[in-house]
Design a protein around this nucleic acid. Structure first.
Length: 559
RNA sequence: GCGCCCGUAGCUCAGCGGAUCAGAGCGCCUGGCUUCGGACCAGGAGGUCGGGGGUUCGAAUCCCUCCGGGCGUACCA
C-alpha cells in the first residue's frame, strides 16, 4: 500500500511539474492523516515555486488520481502533504505481508560464539538473543538462513584452562574428572580459567608451561590423538562444554545448524595466509602480519612467532569455510563492538585475494551487558553475571509477581529477551535484575498478556479466525486500531532492512497500547458490531504473534 | 596520540532531516473494576535533547569544535 502510493504520487509529480522525484511517505500523528510527505519542500527549488503551491496542486491531483484509496489530501505547515486513506483502503492494507527483498538468497548468520572451556555469561545470552532476532529478520526478508556458531576450542584461553585443570587434578589424570558432578562441570571449568589466567599473569614459569600446552593442544588436532592422558582430559572437557552449550541453546530456543570450532578453521586459515605471504601478508619479527596501516587500519598479527595462528587467521579460515559450505549471498556476523576495528583488518586482508567474501559480509555489533551498578564484568577475573543467573533472576521475579509456585519459562524468557531486544542494537545495555525483568509497561509479558487476552476473547466468541469485511464503515476507535495494525509490514520491512529488531518492539508495544485503549472503551462480544470487531481482534492477535515470533518470543494462548 | 562508539525527563530508553517531534516505560501524585482476562486504562508533575559554532525555509537528527564516558590500537579473543 505504502509503495503503491509512493509510486502513484511520484507519477503525479511527474505529470504536474515534469520532474522525476522519489516520494517518501511517513507516518504522521493520526490527527494529520495516515501518510505524509514533504516532497513539495524538496521540489520547491527545482520547480521554482513556493512549496505550498506545489503541495496544493499535488493534493488536488492525488484526490483525483487516487479516488477510492485516498479520502482526504490536505496541505499543512510550510508545505506538507497529508493523506487520509479511505476505510476500505485501510482494511485492504491489512492483507499486506512484509516484503521479501532477499527472496532466493542464501544468508549465513553467525552469532553467539562462546568459547569451550569457559562459562556462558550474560553477554552470551544477549548476543544470542539479538542474533536469533536478526536471523529471523533475514528469514522474513526471504533469505534462506543458516545459523552458525563459532568458538575457540584451541587457543591461549584453552591452554590456560588445561594448565589449571592439570594442576587441580594433581597431574594428567583423566579418571579424576569423573568425580565432578555433571551439573557442576561448567562452573568448575570456569574456576580453572580464572586460575589459569592468574598464573599466566603472575607466574613466569606457569606462563612458559601454558605456552607449551597451547602448542600441545593444537598438536592434538593435527595428530588426531584421543588416547593420551592429556588428550583424554582435553576431549572430555571440550565435550562438557558443547553439552553445556546445547542445553543452554535448547533452553533459550536458539537453533544452530553448525558449530565451527577454531580447531577446524585454523588449518584453512593457515593455508590461506601462508599462500599469500608476500603479496598480502608479511613476515615481521618472526610473525606473519597484515599491514592494516597501509589502508588506514592497524597492523595485526595473523601467525605468531611460534608458528601458531591467532584469532585473525582462524577468522580468515572461518570465512573461507562458510563460503565453501554455503556459497552465501550475504554473511552476517554478529559480535560485540570491541571487535569492530579488528574485523575491518581481517576483512581488508581477505579482500586482497578473495574480494567477493568481504563484499558479501556484514559485521553487526552490539554493546556489552553492564550491571546496574556499573560493575564491569570479566570472565578472566571471575566477577561476571552468568547467563543462567539472568534467567534465574527472571524466573524469580516472575514467581514473585505472579505469586505462583513455579515460574513460567515462556514468560520469564519473554521478559529477558524483550528487555534485551527493545534497546537499539549498538550501545551498551544496562541489566538491572529488578527492572529488566518487569512484567509491566513496555515489557515482553505485557505483550504476551495482550496476546493471551485477545485469544481469550476470540475463544469466548467461539470461532477463532475471522475475516474482515471488504466495505466497512469504521468508527473512530476501530479506525485507529486498523491504522496501527496496517503499519506492521512497514515496520517489519524497516527492521529487516536495517537489521534492527528494536523497531519491532517499539511498534508492538504501541500496537498493544492502541488495542488496550480500544478495548477499554469498546465492547466486542455481544456488541452489534461484534462481527467486525472480532475480525479486528483476530487480526490484532495474529499481528502480535507475528511480531513476537520475529523476536523469538513465545505467544502463549493463555497465561 | 590516533580511530570507532556513546551523551535526550530522577532512572532505563525511543525518536536520527521535517509540521503538537520534546516522547515512552519505570518511579512519584490523582482517578477508574456488579462490565469480554486490571500483567489494564485515563490524567498530573518532571527535560533550553552534554556545551558552543555552522549548513538549511527547518536541526535532538547533518557538519565542525570542546567537555564527559566507553572500546580498540602487533604476537589475547
Amino acid at each position: 500500500m505504502k509503495r503503491e502510493l509512493e509510486t502513484a504520487l511520484a507519477g503525479c509529480v511527474k505529470e504536474l511539474f515534469n520532474v522525476t522525484a522519489t516520494v517518501e511517505l511517513t507516518r504522521p500523528e493520526e490527527q494529520f492523516g495516515d501518510y505524509a510527505t514533504n516532497v513539495a519542500l524538496q521540489l520547491a527549488k527545482e520547480a521554482g515555486k513556493p512549496p505550498r503551491e506545489i503541495a496544493e496542486a499535488l493534493a488536488e491531483k492525488a484526490k483525483e488520481k487516487l479516488v477510492g484509496q485516498v479520502s482526504e489530501a490536505s496541505v499543512a505547515g510550510p508545505g506538507f502533504l497529508n493523506l487520509k486513506l479511505s476505510d476500505g483502503a485501510l482494511i485492504e492494507a491489512l492483507a499486506t505481508d512484509p516484503s521479501r527483498p532477499l527472496a532466493g538468497q542464501t544468508a549465513v548468520a553467525e552469532y553467539s560464539d562462546p568459547n569451550p572451556f569457559k562459562v556462558l555469561h550474560a553477554g552470551h545470552l544477549y548476543t544470542s538473543v539479538v542474533g536469533d532476532a536478526i536471523a529471523n529478520l533475514l528469514e522474513q526478508a526471504g533469505a534462506t538462513v543458516h545459523r552458525v556458531n563459532f568458538g575457540g576450542d584451541v587457543g591461549l584461553h584453552v591452554a590456560k584452562n588445561m594448565w589449571a585443570i592439570i594442576q587441580t587434578l594433581g597431574g594428567e589424570d583423566p579418571e579424576k574428572l569423573d568425580e565432578i558432578p555433571k551439573d557442576q562441570r561448567a562452573a568448575w571449568l570456569s574456576g580453572r580459567y580464572v586460575e589459569g589466567n592468574r598464573a599466566y599473569e603472575e607466574d613466569p614459569a606457569a606462563k612458559a608451561e601454558i605456552a607449551e600446552i597451547n602448542k600441545h593442544v593444537y598438536g592434538l588436532h593435527d595428530s588426531g590423538d584421543r588416547e593420551s592422558a592429556f588428550a583424554r582430559i582435553y576431549w572430555t572437557c571440550r565435550q562438557w562444554s558443547y553439552d553445556y552449550f546445547d542445553e543452554f541453546y535448547a533452553r533459550i530456543g536458539s537453533k544452530f545448524e553448525k558449530y565451527y570450532p577454531e580447531s577446524q578453521t585454523a588449518p584453512v586459515g593457515l593455508q590461506a595466509v601462508r599462500e599469500h605471504v608476500g603479496d598480502v601478508y608479511q613476515e615481521s619479527d618472526g610473525a606473519i602480519i597484515f599491514r592494516g596501516e597501509d589502508y588506514g587500519l592497524h597492523t595485526r598479527v595473523f601467525i605468531n612467532s611460534g608458528g601458531l595462528p591467532t584469532y585473525e587467521t582462524k577468522d580468515v579460515g572461518l570465512i573461507i569455510k562458510k563460503w565453501q559450505d554455503y556459497k552465501f549471498d550475504l554473511s552476517v556476523v554478529i559480535t560485540g563492538n570491541d571487535i569492530i576495528e579488528y574485523m575491518k583488518v581481517v576483512l581488508k586482508s581477505i579482500e586482497q585475494f578473495q574480494p567477493e567474501l568481504p563484499e558479501r559480509t556484514r559485521h553487526l555489533t552490539h554493546g556489552i551487558v553492564k550491571l546496574a551498578g556499573g560493575t564491569k564484568m570479566s570472565s578472566r577475573k571471575g566477577n561476571f553475571l552468568g547467563a543462567a543467573d539472568v534467567l534465574q533472576a527472571a524466573a524469580d521475579a516472575n514467581k514473585a509477581i505472579t505469586g505462583s509456585e513455579q515460574a513460567s519459562e515462556e514468560t520469564s524468557l519473554g521478559a529477558v529477551k524483550y528487555a534485551f531486544l527493545k534497546i537499539r542494537t549498538g550501545g551498551d545495555i544496562i541489566y538491572d535484575p529488578e527492572e529488566s525483568v518487569s512484567l509491566e509497561g513496555n515489557s515482553g509479558p505485557y505483550l504476551q498478556y495482550a496476546h493471551a487476552r485477545a485469544r481469550s476473547v476470540l475463544r469466548k466468541a467461539g470461532q477463532e479466525s475471522r475475516k474482515l469485511p471488504e466495505q466497512p464503515a469504521l468508527e473512530a476507535g476501530e479506525r485507529t486500531l486498523v491504522r496501527k495494525m496496517g503499519e506492521y509490514p512497514e515496520v517489519a520491512d524497516r527492521a529487516a532492512a536495517e537489521l534492527m529488531p528494536h523497531h519491532v518492539c517499539t511498534y508492538l508495544y504501541e500496537l498493544a497500547q492502541t488495542f488496550n485503549r480500544f478495548y477499554e472503551n469498546n465492547r466486542v462480544v455481544g456488541d452489534p458490531r461484534e462481527e467486525l470487531r472480532l475480525a479486528l481482534v483476530s487480526h490484532y492477535a495474529d499481528t502480535l504473534k507475528a511480531g513476537l515470533t520475529l523476536l523469538g518470543i513465545a505467544s502463549p494462548e493463555k497465561m
